[in-house]
Simulated scan of single mutants.
Amino acid sequence: MKAKSSNTASVRQNSLYAWLLAARPKTLAGAAVPVMMGLTLAWAYLYRLNQQACGVDAMGTSVETGTLSWVPAILCVLFAFIMQIDANFINDYFDWKKGTDDEHRLGPRRACAQGWVTPKAMRCAIAVTTLIACVVGFPLVFYGGYDLIWVGVACVVFCFLYTLLLSYIGLGDLLVLVFFGLVPVCVTFYIQTHTLTKEVILSSLACGMVIDTLLVVNNYRDRDNDRRVGKRTLVVIIGEKATEILYFALGLMAFHMGLTFFFQGQYFTFFLPTIYLMLHARTYRKMKAIKRGKALNGILAENARNMFIYGVLFSVGVVLDALFIS
């Protein structure tokens, strides 16, 4: 599939390998973590209801006890993955069309800009992946109600708006908080339980903050090029020093969202993410030391690892608290 074994510059146009590069599989962790957290919280909620032999939640709402429904769980995972790939295709195509991805780009090369995928093929791929996401996501209405149609529509619309407009006016971080935090965690939980709790909402915000650190590093690396092409990301707007503070603060605030679990005696859920906070602090120091250049790609990879570790630590903590403190 490649003319040279290790040189992505010689990727054969529209080959399977070219599409793999365009899909950016490493970004799928950002789609997996919110759904994983939502499913783990739902499992713990249902487990406690079963242990108490009670079908009434703290708000007095009748809830049928049971276990996780695996069909909607799988659909949530698939929808999240497909939408992430769709977002990557959209970002690849429209940033190429706007001229943002040029020879000055510091990050990994993009498929359209490098000629690995033709613009016509990418437009078709965007249409197909959007359609597949809708087909996969639609059955969720039978588990969570027809209001989920509007959630799905919002996911698709803002998937396009992110690259077309919002990332250029400093609103990309807000979209991450909503569509990689609040929406996937809360919707995944709601589909399984038909309710929401304060803990779930705070956890979804924490998830969004952790994932936003990835966008902050990405835009921190690209700040000079973004400023040159007129892309006003939040990093460009607030500047280098404020961005460094924001980066560390996001991880710190996400960790402290866990205080709601601590005050309820769910200590595993609060203390296990301490490991994430230590990793985040170390990555923060490295980012500040590097400042500029392609070396920040290593920080991006390290941050993606931290993000996934946070999701795993949080989920393990939720499970342990449900099993031992019920």
Rank of each mutant, 00 (worst) to 15 (best):
P25D: 13
F179A: 10
V216K: 00
T100H: 05
A44C: 08
L46G: 06
C155K: 00
C155F: 03
Y93S: 03
C54Y: 13
A9C: 01
V156G: 07
V316Y: 03
L175R: 11
L148C: 09
T100P: 02
M122T: 04
S203P: 09
I191D: 09
T8K: 13
R12Y: 13
T100K: 00
D92K: 14
S326F: 09
L279Q: 14
N91T: 07
Y17I: 13
D102T: 01
T195N: 12
R227K: 14
T27P: 09
L300N: 07
F270I: 11
K241Q: 14
P273M: 12
Y190L: 07
D101M: 05
M209P: 00
Y284G: 04
L41P: 01
E240K: 12
L39A: 10
V217P: 01
T27G: 09
E240T: 07
R12P: 08
A29V: 14
D57N: 15
P25A: 13
L68R: 03
L252R: 07
D147H: 12
S167F: 02
G30K: 06
D173I: 05
L41S: 11
R123C: 10
S62Q: 10
H280K: 08
K98L: 09
T40L: 10
G311P: 07
A53F: 10
V187F: 05
S5I: 15
S204C: 10
C124K: 10
E244I: 06
M59D: 11
A322I: 07
L252N: 06
Y17L: 15
A295V: 03
H104F: 14
D173G: 02
L78K: 01
C54A: 10
G107W: 09
L21H: 05
F263C: 10
L140S: 01
G144V: 11
V187L: 15
T243R: 03
F270E: 01
M287Q: 12
A113N: 07
A127R: 11
A58K: 09
A281C: 12
H194P: 01
W96G: 07
M287A: 15
I201E: 01
L165K: 14
K286M: 10
T195W: 04
A295W: 05
A281F: 15
G38D: 05
A22G: 09
A301V: 11
M307K: 00
V33G: 07
L161M: 15
G38W: 02
D224A: 13
F271K: 00
Y45T: 13
A44E: 05
M59K: 13
L279H: 07
L148Y: 13
L277Q: 04
V151Y: 04
F158S: 05
R221C: 04
F262K: 06
L214E: 00
I309K: 09
K231W: 09
L75N: 00
L320K: 03
Q114E: 15
G38I: 03
E199M: 12
Y47M: 08
V235N: 04
E244H: 08
R24S: 03
L164N: 09
T118C: 12
I290E: 12
V210E: 02
F142R: 15
L174Y: 10
F324S: 11
A281N: 08
P184C: 08
N225P: 01
L214W: 00
K198A: 14
